[in-house]
């Protein structure tokens, strides 16, 4: 492969690539860079969002756990009451 030809090819390719950039490219980039900097959340904001998410998850876990425990306690208490009443019936029948 001829080195001159290769150089010319690379130059043509570069010219072709450069032609793909639409007019006002630099201004558009600067505008977008400014917008993305303004829109980017701050470190403190990200930390607070993370902390709020973790707190909300913890509240959900505690509420669900206490609800499940409460239902289970009520069911167990009802079972014990049934056992106690049937034992009392058996005792009175035996007497």
């Amino acid at each position: 492969m001829n080195p001159d030809l290769e150089t010319r090819h690379w130059r043509d390719r570069q010219a072709h690539a450069a032609s793909r950039l639409s007019p006002g490219f630099a201004d558009r980039v600067l505008r977008m860079a400014r917008v993305s900097v303004e829109a980017a959340p701050s470190v403190l904001g990200q930390f607070l969002l993370g902390a709020a998410t973790a707190a909300a998850c913890a509240v959900v876990v505690i509420v669900v756990h206490s609800r499940v425990t409460q239902v289970q306690d009520q069911r167990t208490l009802a079972d014990w009451q049934e056992i106690a009443s049937s034992s009392a019936d058996d005792l009175s029948q035996a007497q």
Partner: peptide, 14 residues
Amino acid sequence: IVSYQHRIAGFVYA
């Protein structure tokens, strides 16, 4: 940006 945009475009294409 203006100084480097064409060279970077060529590099990206490459």
